[in-house]
């Protein structure tokens, strides 16, 4: 089973891009599974189900979404494998820009959009900087030159990645992206694998539900601004 992690800022077009890739993979008769991670609510699982792919939804609720991801993804891979999927795609949003679901030796995709601003590539951490494939979306909304400037900004923070433009609405570029999905590594389990980058942590009183503001309520791993 080929497994890929797809991540990206909220509303960058992850689901649309994955749906277009699924369409292209289905013409090649591949059985596909998708795991959709979100925080509070998602209806994207229905969009996937409509395409006739196997889908699992995971909502992290009150937990840190990426910690939730990493503590569930191994079981998801086993699930995909047991269901004879040829492909398993995990979709998760990088909400704080410091999180990243990318795993060593597993093809990592980051979706980012042209409308997010020229400084955004610099602001996103390992989710973008350690991805193997960077998909830039919403290119139809801006001019060629702006697309190029944005792509060069992405290239600056992740020069080793393959950078592709995909239109999540028309599917332009999805066929080409699919040919890269076909080269993803083939695995049976995630046992023994490691994250590409450690996840951010806090372990302070607020992690345990504290709501009161004030010095006396702060315990644990606290860091102070230089003011």
């Amino acid at each position: 089973m080929r497994f890929l992690t797809v991540s990206g800022p909220p509303s960058s077009g992850k689901t649309s891009v994955i749906l277009r890739v699924i369409e292209a993979l289905q013409t090649r008769q591949r059985k596909i599974g998708v795991v959709k991670f979100d925080c509070l609510l998602t209806e994207d699982d229905q969009l996937y189900a409509k395409k006739g792919v196997l889908v699992k939804k995971g909502l992290s609720g009150a937990l840190c979404p990426d910690h939730y991801f990493v503590s569930n993804i191994e079981a998801c891979v086993t699930w995909g494998h047991e269901n004879d999927c040829a492909y398993l795609i995990s979709e998760s949003a990088g909400l704080c820009n410091r999180c990243s679901p990318h795993i060593n030796e597993i093809t990592a995709v980051c979706v980012i959009d042209n409308l997010s601003g020229i400084n955004t590539p610099r602001k996103i951490g390992p989710m973008l900087k350690s991805a193997d494939i960077v998909v830039i979306t919403k290119g139809d909304i801006v001019s060629q030159a702006e697309r190029e400037v944005f792509a060069s900004r992405v290239k600056q923070v992740n020069p080793g990645a393959v950078i592709m433009h995909v239109n999540g609405i028309t599917g332009q570029g999805a066929f080409e992206l699919t040919s890269l999905f076909e080269e993803a590594s083939d695995i049976e389990t995630l046992k023994g694998k490691t994250l590409r980058f450690s996840m951010p942590s806090a372990l302070c009183s607020y992690c345990l539900g504290e709501t009161r503001i004030g010095e006396e309520h702060q315990t644990g791993n606290i860091r102070k601004m230089d003011i």
Binding site: N114, L115, G117, I118, G139, D140, I141, V142, S143, Q144, A145, E146, E148, V149, A151, S152, K155, V162, I163, M164
Partner: peptide, 30 residues
């Protein structure tokens, strides 16, 4: 896949801009 040596430059129908730059700054950045 090369972004340095692209075979093709495409001028698409859409000519909108979203970046907050002057014409000169934008062309210089490009």
């Amino acid at each position: 896949f090369s972004t340095e040596h692209k075979l093709v430059a495409q001028l698409s129908q859409n000519m909108n801009f979203v970046m907050d730059l002057s014409a000169e700054e934008f062309v210089r950045m490009h």
